[in-house]
């Protein structure tokens, strides 16, 4: 029983990270109908920027945190401005290849800047691990879970309460209609890129203390975050959270109770199951569940 609880803790930790990555995917997809295969690379950039700013340059964590988000979001902005928007007739397949190209490019840049070594960071704070019913919960796990919940909740408020958030939702539903009502659709798409990559950076930062950070860490993380997004229902904020947590927990239980060979397989088996049996995801029927 203790073991199961321990698996549950590690599942929740990983799940929260998948959830944040899934949120980034989902935000961009609902605003632009684009699956960004470079999203994992923005997560990687988040980790590595934090490694430099906080780990190497000793900038205080809150400032390093904000600086990292700013740097990664700026990269996202440049990506939208110079790669995505310049495509004249955006066929989905062409955009997919462009995002793949961008992911290779970003990985290459990261390899030049940070080398091929893997870095690690200490936890965000130095408290001892929590003991709960015989299982231990690392303090960084608490950080991860709290930050991801705050992030999702904050985004929820943004979409519900602010005019910009509502305008983004409107653009997501119909670019044309939004344009007619005077919403600058192009700006909203740009904003979606900036926010999505910024959220990716957050995922990269909170995961940095519990993993090895290197230029090639992003691909698998991105794909799993993507599975989580599909699992919950792509385009839905709460779906992304649910999908992420569920994926993390099932993965941890699968590895712990069945076989470690399942570590990476669980995500994709779940992806196929959800596509075959409930393509809209667990939450709602695709359309109605947009943010």
């Amino acid at each position: 029983m203790q073991e199961v609880l321990q698996y549950l803790f590690s599942g929740l930790t990983n799940g929260a990270i998948y959830a944040v990555i899934a949120v980034g995917f989902s935000m961009l997809y609902s605003a632009t109908d684009l699956i960004n295969f470079a999203h994992g690379e923005f997560v990687m950039l988040g980790s590595l920027f934090l490694v430099t700013l906080w780990g190497a340059w000793q900038i205080p964590l809150p400032i390093a945190f904000l600086l990292t988000v700013a740097c990664v979001a700026l990269t996202g902005l440049l990506f939208e401005r110079f790669a995505i928007r310049t495509v004249r007739k955006p066929q989905p397949i062409v955009l997919v290849i462009i995002t793949v190209g961008a992911s290779i490019f970003l990985r290459g840049v990261a390899m030049i800047l940070w080398g091929k070594d893997a870095y690690s960071l200490p936890p965000f704070s130095n408290q001892p691990p929590l003991e709960l019913a015989g299982a231990t919960l690392l303090i960084q796990s608490v950080w991860i879970i709290v930050i991801s919940l705050l992030l999702v909740f904050g985004l929820h408020l943004f979409y519900r309460r602010t005019l910009t958030g509502k305008a983004m939702q409107a653009t997501a539903i119909s670019k044309r209609a939004a344009w007619i009502t005077g919403i600058p659709a192009g700006l909203m798409v740009l904003l979606a890129f900036v926010m999505s990559t910024g959220v990716g950076a957050v995922a990269g930062m909170i995961i940095a203390p519990v993993t090895m950070c290197s230029y090639d860490m992003g691909t698998l993380l991105g794909l799993k975050g993507f599975c989580a997004a599909m699992l919950g229902g792509i385009g839905s904020l709460w779906g992304a959270l649910l999908g992420g947590i569920l994926l993390g927990v099932l993965e941890a239980l699968g590895v712990g109770l069945i076989s470690s060979a399942l570590k990476d397989g669980v995500a994709f088996i779940l992806l196929l199951l959800i596509l075959y049996f409930r393509p809209g995801g667990l939450i709602g029927a695709a359309e109605s569940a947009r943010f």
Binding site: A83, K89, V94, F105, L106, G108, V109
Partner: peptide
């Protein structure tokens, strides 16, 4: 050498942007 991936990614994006 070490710029290999960067150039590869750029070519991929460039071709798709110019000749979709």
């Amino acid at each position: 050498s070490e710029f290999e991936m960067v150039v590869y990614g750029l070519i991929l994006m460039g071709v798709m942007i110019v000749l979709p």
